[in-house]
Each structure stands twice: as structure tokens, then as C-alpha cells.
């Protein structure tokens, strides 16, 4: 079995938001809708203050609460763990948005373009009537993965089969791959470092792992 996961190394993320921009550009999401975000969190109290950058987005949970509540079956889970939305089935009830503990979904209620009335190339290709009035979220760039697999490429290793945010990450903080493959980089990363998943108590089993600490500087 294959299960694609994302790994974010919180020690390496510098909060540059390049992944955010790459996602925005590649997926042509309208203004106000951001599938890949990087939180800029401040912790502690002065003078002992820390700053942490946390990439967030759809966690592609093994037990997705969004899929459970979806009344239309528009939200589905593939055998490789990727949670998808069928834009032709979704009625835009926003129930999945309420059910997601990761605040990862958006309803596109107004289509618009980043730079006025003229769409960018990506927007022209991606923004259409099918995405207006429905829920959207990070897809792990499922189109790239499928296209890459069809060409015999390996997601996570070959850039053409890897999510745009991972490809664009300047610090190597983001990694992607099949967690069920013992030889995959994500598997090795998780085996050799301490990691956690967000809101694990919810039983969602997110497919987004955060590496935080181990070893010495």
C-alpha cells in the first residue's frame, strides 16, 4: 500500500512563504484562498521569546472528518491516502470547513484574480466555474503526482511528480513521499528524528508530520 505524506522540519523552515507563493501560482487559487500557509507563531514571554514557522494546510488525514460529514460524497480518499474534492458533486454547504480541525478548507464564493481583471496563466488554467461556490483545499498537487506516476516518476524524489510547495522550499524543510516505502526519504526522516502530528487526540491520523528536535546543533 502507498500512503503519501508531507513532512515539515520545523527546525529548518525560515518562514519565507515561498511554498505559499508556489502553491498560489501553481494552483491558481483566487484571492483570499490559500492552500499552503506558513504560520508565524511567537511563543513564550519577553525576554524568553521564540518564533516558530509552521507550514500548514490539508493534512490528508487517514480518518478525515471532512469526508465523514460531507453530505454529497464529494470529499473522498484515494487508496494512496490523498483526500480529494469532486467539484462536480460539492454543493458548497461548508460543512467540511466546520469539520476540519486544521482550518484547511475554503469556500470559493467569489472568483477573482490576483492582479485585477486579467488572470495569470495559472489562474486562467485553474479558475473556472467548477470551483466557484464549492469547497477547495490542498490536493498534494495530485495532478502532478498522477502525471508523474504515469511517466514512471517517483513522488517525493522526482520534482515533476512532487507537490509544488516541496519543490520550491528554499531550506529543504518540506519533504514528500510514500511513508509505506521503507526507502523513501520521508520514512527515513521520521525514523531518524522526533516528530509529531497536529491534534492527534482527534484520531484523524494526519498525513502531515512535523519534525522538531533531536541531536545537537
Amino acid at each position: 500500500m502507498t500512503r503519501y505524506v508531507m513532512v515539515a522540519d520545523l527546525r529548518r523552515c525560515v518562514g519565507c512563504q515561498t511554498c505559499t507563493a508556489a502553491c498560489k501560482e501553481g494552483n491558481g487559487t483566487p484571492p483570499g484562498v490559500q492552500w499552503r500557509r506558513v504560520l508565524d507563531l511567537e511563543t513564550g514571554t519577553y525576554p524568553a521569546v521564540n518564533r516558530v514557522f509552521v507550514p500548514v494546510g490539508c493534512q490528508h488525514c487517514a480518518n478525515p472528518p471532512c469526508m465523514e460529514v460531507c453530505p454529497t460524497t464529494a470529499t473522498r480518499q484515494r487508496t494512496d491516502g490523498i483526500v480529494t474534492i469532486d467539484y462536480d458533486l460539492c454543493i458548497g454547504c461548508s460543512y467540511c470547513i466546520m469539520a476540519c480541525p486544521y482550518d484547511a478548507r475554503s469556500l470559493i464564493d467569489q472568483t477573482g484574480y490576483a492582479f485585477g481583471d486579467t488572470p495569470t496563466t495559472a489562474e486562467a488554467a485553474r479558475t473556472g466555474r467548477e470551483t466557484a461556490g464549492v469547497a477547495t483545499k490542498c490536493s498534494f498537487c495530485v495532478g502532478r503526482i498522477d502525471a508523474g506516476l504515469a511517466r514512471g516518476l517517483v513522488p517525493g524524489l522526482d520534482p515533476d511528480a512532487t507537490p509544488l510547495c516541496v519543490n520550491s522550499c528554499i531550506s529543504g524543510a518540506l519533504s514528500f513521499g510514500d511513508i509505506e516505502d521503507p526507502a523513501s526519504p520521508v520514512n527515513r526522516l521520521l525514523a531518524e528524528n522526533q516528530s509529531f502530528r497536529m491534534h492527534e487526540s482527534e484520531g484523524t491520523e494526519p498525513g502531515f508530520h512535523y519534525i522538531w528536535d533531536k541531536g545537537t546543533l
Partner: peptide, 24 residues
């Protein structure tokens, strides 16, 4: 009264450490 669940991390990472097992 409907606020989303906060995105929070349970630990504080120490930035700057190396990442092992980077893809080759």
C-alpha cells in the same frame, strides 16, 4: 461563538538543527 480550533504545536523546535536523511 463559533471559532475554529487553533492550529498549535505541542513543542517548541530549536531552529537551525540539521535535517538527517535528506533525499539524495
Amino acid at each position: 461563538a463559533a471559532f475554529t480550533r487553533a492550529l498549535a504545536i505541542p513543542v517548541i523546535p530549536i531552529r537551525g538543527r540539521s535535517t538527517h536523511a535528506r533525499q539524495s
